[in-house]
């Protein structure tokens, strides 16, 4: 049986795939510890570029950018999670209604429209209604494209929950809100957290849309890094990249454990 699943060459291909995915990241990590200012010659192990990033002359700029990124990702993911949870309840526990498939298409619209088109459209929109670009415009744009990413895990989770839980609660005269709050929401929690984490990382990751809609003097980490990279890849960029890489790894690990926890509870 297991022999039937095995194809020669598939293991080497997997190894190749992993090497390809990891090699550039690992090399950047290694070189971020390179003492030499020449970025390709190895000059010994050193933390000098990390010191540069955190305490150097441009530290304030990167700190502000990181702070902006964090605030935006936090708020956008929170809003998107709330909106997506509501939508999932309506789509999966709201019976059938006219415009249901249209609603579903609308929720997924941010996934279907290429990012650069979303960026252009949002810029044109804010500019033609005369709305001053700033942190708020970035936030609004991020909430919108985070909704489908939050929706997918939440809806998947809700679909796996039997309807008799909330029906039982409502048979006992719990209000709809209490049935949700006390019965359904705890059951949905792994999905909600997974949705939040996914939306958070998607927001943190975004460059194009942010670059189009950001206001004067406002940078997020990706736009700050992009601006710096345009003038050449410096070692401090590698140090920042390594830090961001670590944050991402932390997040995957977190969501991995949330998932496992959710599966165990089932």
């Amino acid at each position: 049986m297991s022999n039937l699943k095995r194809y020669p060459g598939f293991l080497p291909m997997t190894i190749f795939c992993l090497i390809l995915l990891y090699a550039p990241l690992l090399i950047v990590m290694v070189y971020s510890f390179n003492e030499s200012a020449s970025i390709t010659r190895w000059g010994g192990f050193s933390l000098v570029w990390y010191r540069d990033v955190f305490f150097g002359i441009e530290a304030a700029k990167y700190k502000a950018a990181a702070w902006n990124s964090l605030i935006i990702a936090m708020s956008a993911a929170s809003c998107a999670t709330v909106i997506a949870t509501c939508a999932a309840l309506a789509m999966l526990r709201g019976g059938s209604f006219t415009g249901k498939s249209a609603s579903f298409a609308l929720i997924n619209l941010p996934l279907m429209v290429p990012e650069i088109v979303t960026a252009v459209a949002t810029l044109i929109f804010f500019s033609s209604i005369g709305f001053q670009r700033g942190l708020l415009t970035i936030l609004v744009a991020h909430i919108v494209f985070c909704i489908p990413f939050a929706y997918l895990p939440i809806a998947a989770r809700l679909q796996g929950i039997e309807a008799h839980y909330e029906q039982a609660a409502m048979d006992l005269y719990a209000s709809r809100w209490r049935a949700f709050r006390l019965v359904l929401m705890p059951l949905m929690m792994p999905g909600i957290i997974a949705g939040f984490l996914l939306a958070f990382i998607i927001s943190l990751d975004d460059f194009i849309i942010t670059n189009f809609v950001k206001g004067a003097g406002i940078e997020t980490l990706p736009t700050a890094i992009f601006g710096a990279v345009k003038q050449g890849i410096k070692p401090d960029i590698m140090a920042i990249s390594t830090c961001m890489l670590m944050v991402s790894v932390l997040f995957v690990t977190a969501s991995y454990f949330v998932n496992r926890l959710g599966n165990q509870n089932n």
């Binding site: 929170s78 809003c79 700033g134 708020l136």
Partner: peptide, 13 residues
């Protein structure tokens, strides 16, 4: 969640 969002909107404003 709503507190966070409200606080942020205030900051941005």
């Amino acid at each position: 969640l709503t507190t966070t969002v409200a606080a942020l909107t205030f900051c941005a404003g």
